[in-house]
Amino acid sequence: MRVIGFGLRPSASRQALEHVFARALDKIGSHNGLSVVADSLATLSKRAGHPAFQALAQAHELPVIAVEETAVAGIKTHTRSARIEALFGTGSIAEATALLAAGDGARIIVSRIVSPDGTASAAVAETEGLTGI
C-alpha cells in the first residue's frame, strides 16, 4: 500500500497542494498513471474536509484517510519542523500521517516536500499488503 500524507495549514490553496502532490509523484518516479502510484491520501482528521484537499482527492480519484491528531504524537519522521514537533509531538504531519495510514511496517519512500508558500507538505509511505488505520 502506498499513501501520500499531507500536512496543510487552513490557508493552503489547491495550487500549493497540487505542487507538493506533483513533486511527490515525480520523486516516486512514475508517470504511468496515478493508480500505480498511490492508493490513498492521508491527513489529520481536522484537515480532511479542507475544500482544497477534498478537491485534490476528487480530481485524482483517491480516497482520503483521516488520522486523529493524537495518533501522530511520538511517530518518528525523517524530517523535523520545530513548530510541528511542539504542536503535535512529531516532526512532520505529512510523514506521520502517511506512515500511520499505510499501516504496520510502513516506511517513508519520499520525505516531506514543502510548497513554496509553506502552507502544504506531502510525503509518501509504503508498505506491503492492504493494512492501514
Rank of each mutant, 00 (worst) to 15 (best):
R2I: 15
L8F: 07
R9G: 02
P10D: 14
P10H: 09
P10I: 06
P10A: 00
A12L: 01
Q15G: 01
L17E: 12
L17M: 06
E18N: 06
E18A: 00
E18M: 00
H19F: 13
V20W: 00
A22L: 08
A22E: 13
D26I: 12
K27M: 12
S30P: 03
H31L: 11
H31P: 08
G33L: 07
L34D: 11
S35F: 14
V36R: 15
V36D: 10
A38C: 13
D39K: 02
D39S: 03
S40Q: 10
L41Y: 03
T43Y: 03
T43C: 00
L44K: 03
L44D: 06
S45N: 10
S45M: 02
K46V: 14
R47W: 06
A48I: 04
H50N: 11
P51A: 07
F53W: 06
Q54T: 15
Q54A: 15
Q54L: 15
A55G: 11
L56H: 04
Q58H: 12
Q58N: 13
Q58R: 15
H60K: 05
E61W: 03
L62Y: 08
L62I: 08
L62K: 00
V64P: 01
V64Q: 03
I65L: 06
A66R: 00
V67F: 03
V67C: 01
E68T: 00
E68W: 02
E69N: 03
T70N: 12
T70E: 15
A73R: 14
A73G: 07
G74N: 11
K76R: 12
K76Q: 15
H78K: 09
T79F: 02
T79H: 01
S81I: 09
A82P: 11
E85K: 05
A86F: 05
A86L: 11
L87H: 10
F88H: 15
T90M: 00
S92A: 06
S92N: 07
A94Q: 09
A94Y: 07
A94T: 03
A96R: 05
A96N: 05
A96I: 06
T97M: 01
A98L: 05
A98Q: 08
A98Y: 12
L99S: 04
L100I: 15
A102C: 02
G103N: 05
D104K: 09
G105S: 03
G105Y: 01
I108Q: 10
I108M: 09
I109D: 05
V110N: 04
V110T: 12
S111N: 14
S111K: 15
R112C: 09
I113G: 00
G118D: 14
G118P: 12
S121D: 13
S121A: 10
A123N: 07
V124N: 12
V124A: 02
A125R: 04
T127F: 10
T131C: 04
T131E: 14
T131M: 05
I133G: 14
